[in-house]
Design a protein around this nucleic acid. Structure first.
Lengths: 356, 356
DNA sequence: GTGAAAGCGCTAACAA
DNA sequence: TTGTTAGCGCTTTCAC
């Protein structure tokens, strides 16, 4: 193999044109399904294209059409240790979304680009804009994790379709999320039905929207079932197993420990289990326990963990379809869409009536 | 906001040129660090570029330079139910690789494109070639999962740098993998040291390379410790929890059941645990158990599962760095690289001396 | 040290 | 129905 031959020689539009004895324009039109081209010309060209395994140079096409046929998924969060993409414990949460987005995009022959954007970085605004520019996406899917000032997104949306996932930021920015309130209400209500009144909460880090929403949901649900909120029944974790364990220890040391605890994710619930175990107590007899996310782990621990399952892949697919629609519509829709999908309480073995 | 203003107006090279009172060529050279440009010209242009938040149109540049600054990660497998990308139980295995690749690429300002390639599809060869073309990658990282005929990759490598991950296909194709033989030997040897002779194996689906390698490693290690191989001590699973459970049931029903079983991944090991539990036996007293992959779940089950940890993220990073080197070298290296990284046996609570 | 000009491969008016 | 032509925004000789 000669050194010179190292580059793959791709057939170009021009090659096909020469061979078919037509112009480049005709080939282009034919291949793009323009109805004005004669049927037999189309046939010939298609045949030729197939023979030569022709694929258009996507850069040339995009340069010319001034679109990128790309949508970017930006994951906005603080690049601290706990941030989703960086630690395994959150993969089970992000992966389904990721999968939904990437599969949908590839079905529609769109490129998918993924970027983690660090909110701690200075000039966050410029950061996301330059990311958007360099990925030259036709649309942005923004996965909102942490609380922050996202107001600049609204003006960006005027130029570039934007949809937020996991959190509705404002009326003017379309969003797709899962109903944390319903999820938490189902949890608290289930516990109440079982007879629990002393229901504690181990939350995620309160700079994360999901953590805050689930906490708020917990508080609201408590009110709904007529139980007064106790500050000492709430502890803040960091999504990880260890923090759940610590949280449960704190709760167990209370003069009046809870009979049930609701954790904002499965990992912390599993840590909590360990603490209960180490304290010589058993679940659910002494403490009822509920997690969130319905990860595989919840089915694997003993007792099996009651949890809340979320249609995450569907969320990703729906958001992707919406952004694709916005891109092809090429104008702002009359009204912004705000979709909230319901989660589902999955009852397993970690809850029962209170014994005290 | 006018409808017309919908498109983001990016500053172009030309805009900077006009403002700096130089030609497009100069701006281009200056921005690309060409030493022939006068220092003060460079300074001016850089300042202007920063002010205008200039990023080059990547499509124009790529079209002109005839490179894509993209590397693709192709995941080659059968798109049946169990295929990695499609089921959660394998995410814990693929994610670290994925993460290593994508992070390294983004550090080097390369684009990352990801594609799942279905080996069941007809015209597999064309399939991957057209995928490679349409992603127009400068290099290919190929994650090999299932056994298949990959010989066509070698000729492709002459045009486009290719590196396989997870499996060495041939001498002429660089590869990065983790030593399944060492991993399995450490497992079997550990069990032998404990005094076990009746060591069974629950394998993955035998069309998967990892499953085959771990099985072969098991057989070879048995020989090494002087134990004769028994066919009835091997059962084939499908990586999932349920299949591990079924496998263990089969093993338990043997007239002479094993005292230890080595599972080709953690999920199956956890299924096996369930079967042991249901049979009224306990781990490790009645049966010693070892998994593979060292997923989080292994730390979460009771007893904690002994497993084999693999430097997957590092594997992804190394492979990426190598392909980047190959791309910039722009010629084949003298010799192909074959890197095999060692795994590590992580001892936990699921093994002890045999009681029988 | 800088500029003019050609060209990367494709699309899209506008003509013919 | 098909061809001509002019870009898209950047890089890169080759003159000056």
């Amino acid at each position: 193999m000669e050194e010179k031959a190292k580059r793959v020689i791709k057939t170009r539009l021009e090659d096909l044109a020469r061979e078919a004895n037509v112009s480049k324009a005709t080939v282009s039109l034919a291949l793009n399904g323009n109805p004005k081209v004669a049927a037999k010309t189309v046939e010939l060209i298609t045949k030729l294209a197939a023979e030569h395994n022709y694929t258009p140079n996507s850069f040339a096409r995009r340069l010319s059409k001034r679109t990128s046929e790309t949508v970017s998924l930006f994951m906005m969060g603080k690049a601290t240790e706990y941030s989703g993409w960086l630690i395994p414990s959150s993969w089970l949460f992000y992966n389904p979304i990721f999968k939904g987005v990437s599969l949908t995009l590839s079905e529609k022959h769109y490129q998918f680009s993924f970027e983690f954007i660090d909110l701690d970085g200075k000039k966050r605004e410029n950061n996301i804009i330059s990311h958007a520019q360099s990925s030259s996406a036709d649309g942005l899917l923004i996965l909102i994790i942490d609380e922050s000032d996202y107001s600049f997104l609204e003006s960006l949306d005027a130029f570039l379709p934007i949809i937020t996932i996991n959190k509705k930021l404002s009326d003017t920015l379309s969003s797709f999320e899962i109903d944390n309130y319903k999820g938490t209400f189902d949890v608290v209500n289930y516990l109440a039905t079982l007879g629990h009144r002393k229901i504690a909460h181990i939350g995620g880090p309160f700079r994360a929207y999901n953590a805050v929403d689930r906490f708020n949901g917990y508080v609201a649900s408590l009110k709904e079932i007529g139980v007064t909120f106790r500050e000492d029944y709430v502890v803040e974790g960091d999504w990880n197993i260890e923090s759940g364990k610590d949280g449960m220890k704190t709760l167990l040391n209370l003069s009046e420990p809870p009979t049930a605890v609701f954790c904002a994710n499965d990992h912390m619930a599993i840590g909590a289990m360990e603490a209960v175990e180490e304290a010589g107590l058993t679940i659910p007899r002494d403490i009822s326990l509920i997690g969130y996310d319905d990860t595989e782990m919840s089915r694997v621990v003993r007792p099996k963990l009651t949890s809340v399952s979320q249609p995450l892949e569907k969320l990703g697919r729906m958001a992707t379809n919406e952004i694709l629609g916005r891109i092809t519509a090429r104008s702002a829709p009359d009204s912004k869409k705000h979709v909230v999908l319901p989660p589902l309480l999955v009852k397993r073995e970690s809850c029962c009536e209170p014994s005290r």
